[in-house]
Design a protein around this nucleic acid. Structure first.
Lengths: 225, 225
DNA sequence: CTTAATGGTAGACACTCGTATACAACGCTG
DNA sequence: CAGCGTTGTATACGAGTGTCTACCATTAAG
Protein backbone atom coordinates (compact mmCIF):
# COMPACT_ATOMS: atom_id res chain seq x y z
CA UNK A 1 0.00 0.00 0.00
CA UNK A 2 3.02 2.21 0.29
CA UNK A 3 5.86 2.73 -2.10
CA UNK A 4 8.61 3.79 0.17
CA UNK A 5 11.34 3.19 -2.35
CA UNK A 6 11.24 6.72 -3.55
CA UNK A 7 14.81 7.85 -3.66
CA UNK A 8 14.68 11.55 -4.09
CA UNK A 9 17.20 14.22 -3.34
CA UNK A 10 15.96 14.78 0.22
CA UNK A 11 13.02 12.57 1.02
CA UNK A 12 12.12 10.69 4.21
CA UNK A 13 9.45 13.25 4.88
CA UNK A 14 6.79 11.21 3.18
CA UNK A 15 8.00 7.83 4.40
CA UNK A 16 8.69 7.65 8.11
CA UNK A 17 9.77 4.27 9.33
CA UNK A 18 7.29 2.11 11.19
CA UNK A 19 9.12 2.78 14.41
CA UNK A 20 8.61 6.49 14.02
CA UNK A 21 4.99 5.97 13.17
CA UNK A 22 4.54 4.02 16.37
CA UNK A 23 6.29 6.68 18.42
CA UNK A 24 4.15 9.40 16.92
CA UNK A 25 1.01 7.39 17.49
CA UNK A 26 1.95 6.76 21.10
CA UNK A 27 2.52 10.45 21.65
CA UNK A 28 -0.77 11.32 20.07
CA UNK A 29 -2.75 8.78 22.04
CA UNK A 30 -1.05 9.57 25.31
CA UNK A 31 -1.64 13.27 24.89
CA UNK A 32 -5.24 12.90 23.95
CA UNK A 33 -6.41 10.57 26.60
CA UNK A 34 -4.62 8.44 29.08
CA UNK A 35 -1.12 7.78 30.26
CA UNK A 36 1.54 6.00 28.28
CA UNK A 37 1.44 2.79 30.24
CA UNK A 38 -2.24 2.25 29.64
CA UNK A 39 -2.15 2.42 25.87
CA UNK A 40 -2.83 -0.88 24.21
CA UNK A 41 -0.55 -2.46 21.68
CA UNK A 42 -3.43 -3.01 19.34
CA UNK A 43 -4.68 0.52 19.84
CA UNK A 44 -1.23 1.75 19.00
CA UNK A 45 -1.01 -0.25 15.83
CA UNK A 46 -4.42 0.96 14.79
CA UNK A 47 -3.46 4.60 15.26
CA UNK A 48 -0.22 4.09 13.39
CA UNK A 49 -1.95 2.28 10.55
CA UNK A 50 0.03 -0.85 11.20
CA UNK A 51 -0.58 -4.36 12.28
CA UNK A 52 -0.68 -4.83 16.03
CA UNK A 53 2.17 -7.25 15.92
CA UNK A 54 4.48 -4.83 14.21
CA UNK A 55 4.95 -3.23 17.59
CA UNK A 56 6.99 -6.20 18.72
CA UNK A 57 9.36 -5.80 15.81
CA UNK A 58 10.62 -2.59 17.36
CA UNK A 59 9.90 -2.70 21.07
CA UNK A 60 9.63 -5.25 23.79
CA UNK A 61 7.46 -3.37 26.24
CA UNK A 62 5.40 -0.27 26.41
CA UNK A 63 8.02 0.89 28.87
CA UNK A 64 10.56 0.31 26.15
CA UNK A 65 8.68 2.59 23.82
CA UNK A 66 8.22 5.12 26.59
CA UNK A 67 11.92 5.33 27.20
CA UNK A 68 12.55 5.89 23.51
CA UNK A 69 10.02 8.67 23.59
CA UNK A 70 11.64 10.30 26.58
CA UNK A 71 15.03 10.12 24.94
CA UNK A 72 13.58 12.00 22.03
CA UNK A 73 11.97 14.52 24.35
CA UNK A 74 15.21 15.16 26.17
CA UNK A 75 17.14 15.70 22.98
CA UNK A 76 14.53 17.96 21.41
CA UNK A 77 14.17 20.12 24.48
CA UNK A 78 17.74 20.47 25.62
CA UNK A 79 19.21 21.41 22.28
CA UNK A 80 17.22 24.61 21.73
CA UNK A 81 17.73 25.58 25.33
CA UNK A 82 21.47 25.34 24.94
CA UNK A 83 21.32 27.26 21.71
CA UNK A 84 19.41 30.01 23.42
CA UNK A 85 21.84 30.12 26.27
CA UNK A 86 24.65 30.83 23.86
CA UNK A 87 22.70 33.68 22.29
CA UNK A 88 21.97 35.45 25.54
CA UNK A 89 24.62 37.86 26.62
CA UNK A 90 22.89 40.17 29.03
CA UNK A 91 21.91 38.59 32.29
CA UNK A 92 18.91 40.81 32.72
CA UNK A 93 16.84 38.98 30.17
CA UNK A 94 18.01 35.49 30.90
CA UNK A 95 15.17 34.28 33.08
CA UNK A 96 12.34 35.67 31.03
CA UNK A 97 13.81 34.59 27.76
CA UNK A 98 14.41 31.08 28.96
CA UNK A 99 10.90 30.66 30.27
CA UNK A 100 9.53 32.13 27.08
CA UNK A 101 11.52 29.66 25.07
CA UNK A 102 10.19 26.76 27.04
CA UNK A 103 6.65 28.00 26.62
CA UNK A 104 7.13 28.55 22.91
CA UNK A 105 8.47 25.08 22.59
CA UNK A 106 5.47 23.81 24.49
CA UNK A 107 3.15 25.56 22.09
CA UNK A 108 4.91 23.91 19.19
CA UNK A 109 4.88 20.43 20.65
CA UNK A 110 2.09 20.31 23.19
CA UNK A 111 1.84 16.55 23.31
CA UNK A 112 5.45 16.13 24.25
CA UNK A 113 5.08 18.36 27.25
CA UNK A 114 1.74 17.05 28.37
CA UNK A 115 2.95 13.51 28.29
CA UNK A 116 6.27 14.41 29.84
CA UNK A 117 4.86 16.20 32.85
CA UNK A 118 2.14 13.64 33.26
CA UNK A 119 4.50 10.69 33.30
CA UNK A 120 6.62 12.45 35.91
CA UNK A 121 4.09 11.12 38.38
CA UNK A 122 2.93 8.17 36.36
CA UNK A 123 2.79 4.50 37.09
CA UNK A 124 6.06 3.29 35.64
CA UNK A 125 9.07 3.87 37.82
CA UNK A 126 11.65 3.53 35.04
CA UNK A 127 9.83 6.19 33.07
CA UNK A 128 9.68 8.46 36.08
CA UNK A 129 13.37 8.12 36.68
CA UNK A 130 14.22 8.79 33.06
CA UNK A 131 12.19 11.96 33.19
CA UNK A 132 13.82 13.04 36.42
CA UNK A 133 17.11 12.62 34.67
CA UNK A 134 16.01 14.91 31.87
CA UNK A 135 14.95 17.48 34.41
CA UNK A 136 18.23 17.08 36.24
CA UNK A 137 20.12 17.75 33.05
CA UNK A 138 18.12 20.84 32.24
CA UNK A 139 18.55 22.02 35.80
CA UNK A 140 22.25 21.44 35.45
CA UNK A 141 22.32 23.62 32.37
CA UNK A 142 20.43 26.30 34.20
CA UNK A 143 22.72 26.14 37.20
CA UNK A 144 25.66 26.53 34.87
CA UNK A 145 23.97 29.57 33.37
CA UNK A 146 23.44 31.06 36.77
CA UNK A 147 27.07 30.61 37.64
CA UNK A 148 28.58 31.89 34.39
CA UNK A 149 26.27 34.85 33.99
CA UNK A 150 26.41 35.67 37.65
CA UNK A 151 22.67 35.77 38.02
CA UNK A 152 22.98 34.82 41.65
CA UNK A 153 26.46 36.03 42.52
CA UNK A 154 28.02 34.68 45.63
CA UNK A 155 25.64 31.82 46.03
CA UNK A 156 27.28 28.48 46.72
CA UNK A 157 27.00 25.87 43.99
CA UNK A 158 24.87 23.49 45.92
CA UNK A 159 22.20 26.02 46.73
CA UNK A 160 22.28 27.30 43.19
CA UNK A 161 21.75 23.80 41.94
CA UNK A 162 18.80 23.26 44.24
CA UNK A 163 17.26 26.51 43.13
CA UNK A 164 17.70 25.59 39.50
CA UNK A 165 15.93 22.32 40.06
CA UNK A 166 12.93 23.91 41.70
CA UNK A 167 12.76 26.49 38.94
CA UNK A 168 12.81 23.88 36.21
CA UNK A 169 10.18 21.72 37.83
CA UNK A 170 7.92 24.67 38.48
CA UNK A 171 8.33 25.91 34.93
CA UNK A 172 7.48 22.53 33.50
CA UNK A 173 4.37 22.27 35.62
CA UNK A 174 3.31 25.73 34.59
CA UNK A 175 3.62 24.63 31.02
CA UNK A 176 0.56 22.47 31.45
CA UNK A 177 -1.46 25.38 32.76
CA UNK A 178 -0.09 27.47 29.94
CA UNK A 179 -1.29 24.98 27.38
CA UNK A 180 -4.63 24.33 28.99
CA UNK A 181 -5.62 27.96 29.41
CA UNK A 182 -4.75 29.96 26.30
CA UNK A 183 -6.64 32.96 27.63
CA UNK A 184 -4.48 33.20 30.73
CA UNK A 185 -1.09 32.78 29.14
CA UNK A 186 0.26 36.21 29.89
CA UNK A 187 -0.85 35.87 33.47
CA UNK A 188 0.83 32.50 33.80
CA UNK A 189 4.05 33.73 32.25
CA UNK A 190 4.05 36.68 34.61
CA UNK A 191 3.57 34.45 37.61
CA UNK A 192 6.36 32.10 36.70
CA UNK A 193 8.80 34.93 36.11
CA UNK A 194 7.74 36.59 39.34
CA UNK A 195 8.20 33.32 41.17
CA UNK A 196 11.65 32.74 39.79
CA UNK A 197 12.77 36.26 40.55
CA UNK A 198 11.46 36.13 44.08
CA UNK A 199 13.19 32.84 44.63
CA UNK A 200 16.54 34.12 43.38
CA UNK A 201 16.33 37.35 45.30
CA UNK A 202 15.31 35.59 48.47
CA UNK A 203 18.07 33.04 48.24
CA UNK A 204 20.63 35.75 47.80
CA UNK A 205 19.21 37.85 50.59
CA UNK A 206 19.43 34.92 52.94
CA UNK A 207 22.89 34.09 51.73
CA UNK A 208 23.93 37.68 52.24
CA UNK A 209 23.57 37.15 55.95
CA UNK A 210 20.09 37.81 57.11
CA UNK A 211 19.63 35.76 60.27
CA UNK A 212 17.10 33.02 59.90
CA UNK A 213 14.94 34.25 62.74
CA UNK A 214 14.32 37.55 61.04
CA UNK A 215 13.76 35.77 57.82
CA UNK A 216 10.31 34.69 58.73
CA UNK A 217 9.32 37.61 60.83
CA UNK A 218 11.22 40.11 58.69
CA UNK A 219 10.58 43.17 60.71
CA UNK A 220 13.98 44.34 59.60
CA UNK A 221 12.76 44.43 56.05
CA UNK A 222 10.34 47.13 56.89
CA UNK A 223 7.63 48.03 54.53
CA UNK A 224 7.97 51.30 52.70
CA UNK A 225 5.11 53.24 54.18
CA UNK B 1 -19.21 -20.56 49.51
CA UNK B 2 -18.42 -18.05 52.20
CA UNK B 3 -19.63 -17.76 55.72
CA UNK B 4 -19.91 -14.07 56.18
CA UNK B 5 -22.19 -14.39 59.10
CA UNK B 6 -19.49 -13.39 61.56
CA UNK B 7 -21.06 -10.47 63.32
CA UNK B 8 -19.02 -8.84 66.02
CA UNK B 9 -20.55 -7.14 69.02
CA UNK B 10 -21.72 -4.14 67.09
CA UNK B 11 -18.68 -2.37 66.00
CA UNK B 12 -17.93 -1.06 62.56
CA UNK B 13 -14.23 -1.69 62.54
CA UNK B 14 -14.71 -5.27 61.51
CA UNK B 15 -17.59 -4.54 59.23
CA UNK B 16 -17.09 -1.49 57.08
CA UNK B 17 -19.78 -0.87 54.54
CA UNK B 18 -19.24 -2.07 51.03
CA UNK B 19 -18.79 1.46 49.82
CA UNK B 20 -15.89 1.99 52.21
CA UNK B 21 -14.38 -1.30 51.20
CA UNK B 22 -14.45 -0.21 47.60
CA UNK B 23 -12.92 3.15 48.42
CA UNK B 24 -10.14 1.53 50.40
CA UNK B 25 -9.52 -0.99 47.66
CA UNK B 26 -9.35 1.75 45.05
CA UNK B 27 -6.84 3.67 47.14
CA UNK B 28 -4.73 0.60 47.63
CA UNK B 29 -4.72 -0.37 43.99
CA UNK B 30 -4.10 3.14 42.74
CA UNK B 31 -1.20 3.61 45.12
CA UNK B 32 0.40 0.32 44.28
CA UNK B 33 0.25 0.39 40.58
CA UNK B 34 -1.56 2.57 38.19
CA UNK B 35 -3.73 5.63 38.10
CA UNK B 36 -7.27 5.74 39.35
CA UNK B 37 -8.90 5.89 35.98
CA UNK B 38 -7.26 2.71 34.79
CA UNK B 39 -8.45 0.48 37.57
CA UNK B 40 -11.01 -2.05 36.47
CA UNK B 41 -14.35 -2.50 38.12
CA UNK B 42 -13.72 -6.21 38.41
CA UNK B 43 -10.24 -5.69 39.79
CA UNK B 44 -11.75 -3.39 42.34
CA UNK B 45 -14.39 -5.84 43.43
CA UNK B 46 -11.79 -8.56 43.70
CA UNK B 47 -9.57 -6.44 45.93
CA UNK B 48 -12.53 -5.45 48.07
CA UNK B 49 -13.74 -9.03 48.35
CA UNK B 50 -17.00 -8.15 46.68
CA UNK B 51 -18.83 -9.02 43.57
CA UNK B 52 -17.86 -6.89 40.57
CA UNK B 53 -21.37 -5.64 40.15
CA UNK B 54 -21.57 -4.30 43.68
CA UNK B 55 -19.56 -1.37 42.43
CA UNK B 56 -22.55 -0.10 40.55
CA UNK B 57 -24.64 -0.08 43.68
CA UNK B 58 -22.55 2.77 45.01
CA UNK B 59 -20.97 4.53 42.05
CA UNK B 60 -21.78 5.23 38.47
CA UNK B 61 -18.30 5.77 37.14
CA UNK B 62 -14.75 5.37 38.19
CA UNK B 63 -14.70 9.12 38.07
CA UNK B 64 -17.55 9.08 40.54
CA UNK B 65 -15.53 6.99 42.93
CA UNK B 66 -12.51 9.18 42.36
CA UNK B 67 -14.41 12.27 43.34
CA UNK B 68 -15.59 10.60 46.52
CA UNK B 69 -12.00 9.72 47.29
CA UNK B 70 -10.85 13.26 46.72
CA UNK B 71 -13.56 14.59 48.95
CA UNK B 72 -12.27 12.34 51.67
CA UNK B 73 -8.72 13.44 51.03
CA UNK B 74 -9.65 17.08 51.24
CA UNK B 75 -11.48 16.66 54.49
CA UNK B 76 -8.78 14.52 56.09
CA UNK B 77 -6.00 16.85 55.12
CA UNK B 78 -7.53 20.23 55.75
CA UNK B 79 -8.83 19.55 59.23
CA UNK B 80 -5.48 18.77 60.91
CA UNK B 81 -3.88 21.68 59.11
CA UNK B 82 -6.44 24.05 60.53
CA UNK B 83 -6.03 22.54 63.97
CA UNK B 84 -2.32 23.06 63.78
CA UNK B 85 -2.73 26.61 62.64
CA UNK B 86 -4.67 27.38 65.78
CA UNK B 87 -1.96 25.85 67.97
CA UNK B 88 0.88 27.86 66.50
CA UNK B 89 1.49 31.15 68.23
CA UNK B 90 5.00 32.06 67.31
CA UNK B 91 5.35 32.91 63.71
CA UNK B 92 8.96 31.83 63.55
CA UNK B 93 8.10 28.19 63.58
CA UNK B 94 5.09 28.41 61.38
CA UNK B 95 6.63 27.34 58.11
CA UNK B 96 8.64 24.45 59.45
CA UNK B 97 5.83 23.15 61.61
CA UNK B 98 3.35 23.25 58.82
CA UNK B 99 5.57 21.40 56.41
CA UNK B 100 6.38 18.88 59.08
CA UNK B 101 2.72 18.31 59.70
CA UNK B 102 2.07 17.68 56.05
CA UNK B 103 4.95 15.25 55.89
CA UNK B 104 3.82 13.44 59.00
CA UNK B 105 0.39 13.15 57.57
CA UNK B 106 1.91 11.79 54.39
CA UNK B 107 3.78 9.17 56.37
CA UNK B 108 0.56 8.09 58.00
CA UNK B 109 -1.45 7.90 54.82
CA UNK B 110 1.01 7.45 52.00
CA UNK B 111 -1.49 6.15 49.50
CA UNK B 112 -3.68 9.19 49.81
CA UNK B 113 -0.85 11.49 48.94
CA UNK B 114 0.60 9.40 46.18
CA UNK B 115 -2.73 9.09 44.48
CA UNK B 116 -3.56 12.73 45.07
CA UNK B 117 -0.41 14.12 43.54
CA UNK B 118 -0.49 11.62 40.73
CA UNK B 119 -4.03 12.41 39.71
CA UNK B 120 -3.18 16.09 39.65
CA UNK B 121 -1.80 15.39 36.21
CA UNK B 122 -3.91 12.38 35.44
CA UNK B 123 -6.23 11.60 32.61
CA UNK B 124 -9.56 12.67 34.05
CA UNK B 125 -10.25 16.35 33.90
CA UNK B 126 -12.99 16.38 36.58
CA UNK B 127 -10.60 14.69 38.97
CA UNK B 128 -7.87 17.16 38.14
CA UNK B 129 -10.16 20.07 38.79
CA UNK B 130 -11.39 18.65 42.07
CA UNK B 131 -7.81 18.28 43.23
CA UNK B 132 -6.96 21.78 42.16
CA UNK B 133 -9.83 22.93 44.25
CA UNK B 134 -8.44 21.12 47.29
CA UNK B 135 -5.09 22.76 46.69
CA UNK B 136 -6.78 26.10 46.27
CA UNK B 137 -8.50 25.71 49.60
CA UNK B 138 -5.33 24.75 51.41
CA UNK B 139 -3.55 27.64 49.72
CA UNK B 140 -6.34 29.91 50.88
CA UNK B 141 -5.83 28.73 54.43
CA UNK B 142 -2.12 29.38 54.13
CA UNK B 143 -2.65 32.82 52.69
CA UNK B 144 -4.93 33.60 55.60
CA UNK B 145 -2.20 32.41 57.94
CA UNK B 146 0.33 34.62 56.25
CA UNK B 147 -1.92 37.60 56.62
CA UNK B 148 -2.99 37.08 60.21
CA UNK B 149 0.43 36.14 61.54
CA UNK B 150 2.14 38.78 59.47
CA UNK B 151 4.58 36.37 57.97
CA UNK B 152 4.87 38.51 54.90
CA UNK B 153 3.89 41.94 56.18
CA UNK B 154 3.05 44.57 53.65
CA UNK B 155 2.60 42.18 50.79
CA UNK B 156 -0.56 42.69 48.79
CA UNK B 157 -3.18 40.01 49.05
CA UNK B 158 -2.97 38.88 45.50
CA UNK B 159 0.76 38.29 45.57
CA UNK B 160 0.45 36.57 48.92
CA UNK B 161 -2.17 34.30 47.50
CA UNK B 162 -0.01 33.39 44.53
CA UNK B 163 2.90 32.67 46.80
CA UNK B 164 0.77 30.45 48.97
CA UNK B 165 -0.33 28.47 45.98
CA UNK B 166 3.18 27.83 44.78
CA UNK B 167 4.22 26.84 48.27
CA UNK B 168 1.40 24.34 48.64
CA UNK B 169 1.98 22.76 45.25
CA UNK B 170 5.69 22.49 45.83
CA UNK B 171 5.16 20.98 49.25
CA UNK B 172 2.77 18.41 47.89
CA UNK B 173 5.17 17.41 45.19
CA UNK B 174 7.97 17.12 47.67
CA UNK B 175 5.80 14.78 49.64
CA UNK B 176 6.25 12.17 46.95
CA UNK B 177 10.00 12.44 47.13
CA UNK B 178 9.75 12.34 50.89
CA UNK B 179 7.83 9.10 50.76
CA UNK B 180 9.93 7.49 48.08
CA UNK B 181 13.29 8.19 49.70
CA UNK B 182 13.15 7.52 53.44
CA UNK B 183 16.90 7.94 53.70
CA UNK B 184 16.82 11.48 52.39
CA UNK B 185 13.93 12.80 54.41
CA UNK B 186 15.82 15.33 56.46
CA UNK B 187 17.44 16.64 53.33
CA UNK B 188 14.10 16.99 51.60
CA UNK B 189 12.52 18.73 54.56
CA UNK B 190 15.42 21.14 54.72
CA UNK B 191 15.10 21.91 51.03
CA UNK B 192 11.40 22.61 51.18
CA UNK B 193 11.76 24.92 54.15
CA UNK B 194 14.67 26.68 52.51
CA UNK B 195 12.66 27.07 49.37
CA UNK B 196 9.68 28.54 51.16
CA UNK B 197 11.77 30.92 53.16
CA UNK B 198 13.67 32.12 50.12
CA UNK B 199 10.44 32.65 48.28
CA UNK B 200 8.91 34.71 51.08
CA UNK B 201 11.99 36.78 51.65
CA UNK B 202 12.44 37.40 47.96
CA UNK B 203 8.85 38.45 47.43
CA UNK B 204 9.05 40.91 50.28
CA UNK B 205 12.40 42.24 49.20
CA UNK B 206 11.08 42.90 45.74
CA UNK B 207 7.96 44.42 47.16
CA UNK B 208 9.98 46.66 49.42
CA UNK B 209 12.09 47.76 46.49
CA UNK B 210 15.40 46.72 47.90
CA UNK B 211 18.41 47.38 45.68
CA UNK B 212 19.29 43.74 45.94
CA UNK B 213 16.18 42.98 44.03
CA UNK B 214 17.00 45.12 41.11
CA UNK B 215 19.72 42.79 39.98
CA UNK B 216 17.41 40.14 38.75
CA UNK B 217 14.00 41.65 38.81
CA UNK B 218 14.34 44.37 36.26
CA UNK B 219 13.63 42.18 33.33
CA UNK B 220 10.97 43.15 30.91
CA UNK B 221 8.43 40.84 29.43
CA UNK B 222 8.43 40.34 25.73
CA UNK B 223 5.25 41.53 24.13
CA UNK B 224 2.69 38.77 23.82
CA UNK B 225 2.05 37.26 20.46
C1' DC C 1 20.10 -18.13 -7.75
C1' DT C 2 20.15 -19.16 -3.09
C1' DT C 3 20.07 -17.55 1.49
C1' DA C 4 19.00 -14.98 5.30
C1' DA C 5 17.60 -11.04 7.73
C1' DT C 6 14.35 -7.38 8.40
C1' DG C 7 9.72 -5.26 8.58
C1' DG C 8 4.97 -6.10 8.11
C1' DT C 9 0.68 -9.12 7.90
C1' DA C 10 -2.98 -12.66 9.21
C1' DG C 11 -5.22 -15.72 12.22
C1' DA C 12 -6.01 -17.80 16.43
C1' DC C 13 -5.99 -18.75 21.64
C1' DA C 14 -7.01 -17.67 26.13
C1' DC C 15 -7.83 -14.46 28.60
C1' DT C 16 -9.99 -9.81 31.10
C1' DC C 17 -13.10 -6.44 30.81
C1' DG C 18 -17.80 -3.59 31.37
C1' DT C 19 -22.26 -4.24 31.82
C1' DA C 20 -27.14 -6.23 31.44
C1' DT C 21 -30.42 -9.25 33.54
C1' DA C 22 -32.15 -11.99 37.06
C1' DC C 23 -32.21 -13.40 41.83
C1' DA C 24 -31.54 -13.50 47.04
C1' DA C 25 -31.12 -11.54 51.75
C1' DC C 26 -31.78 -7.76 54.56
C1' DG C 27 -34.11 -3.72 57.18
C1' DC C 28 -37.60 -0.73 56.84
C1' DT C 29 -42.63 0.95 57.13
C1' DG C 30 -47.36 0.15 56.39
C1' DC D 1 -48.48 -10.08 57.45
C1' DA D 2 -47.21 -7.70 52.84
C1' DG D 3 -44.57 -4.44 50.27
C1' DC D 4 -40.34 -2.20 49.16
C1' DG D 5 -35.91 -0.08 48.73
C1' DT D 6 -31.08 -1.24 49.55
C1' DT D 7 -27.13 -4.13 49.15
C1' DG D 8 -24.90 -8.01 47.45
C1' DT D 9 -24.67 -12.23 44.30
C1' DA D 10 -24.65 -15.36 40.02
C1' DT D 11 -24.51 -15.80 35.27
C1' DA D 12 -23.86 -14.59 30.74
C1' DC D 13 -22.67 -12.01 26.45
C1' DG D 14 -19.89 -9.36 23.36
C1' DA D 15 -16.01 -6.69 22.78
C1' DG D 16 -11.22 -5.82 23.36
C1' DT D 17 -6.79 -7.34 24.78
C1' DG D 18 -1.57 -9.51 24.75
C1' DT D 19 0.90 -12.56 22.49
C1' DC D 20 2.06 -16.97 19.92
C1' DT D 21 2.90 -19.11 15.39
C1' DA D 22 3.03 -18.95 10.66
C1' DC D 23 3.28 -16.55 6.27
C1' DC D 24 4.63 -12.78 2.80
C1' DA D 25 7.76 -8.95 0.67
C1' DT D 26 11.78 -6.58 0.17
C1' DT D 27 16.59 -6.08 0.52
C1' DA D 28 21.51 -7.38 0.60
C1' DA D 29 25.23 -10.78 0.51
C1' DG D 30 27.25 -15.16 -1.01
Amino acid sequence: MSKHKDIGPQDEAAGPTGRDKLLAAALKLAAKSRSLSTIGVRELGREAGLNPNTFYRHFNNLDDLSMALIDKLGRELRAPLQTLRRSLTSREENVVRTVELVFDFAKLQPEVFMVGVRELYGASQPVREALRKVIDEVAGDLAEDMRVMEITPGLDDRTARELAEVVVVQTFHSTLDYLEHPDRRNEILRRVVQFINALFVGAMAIHAGLPLATMVSTQKLKKPD
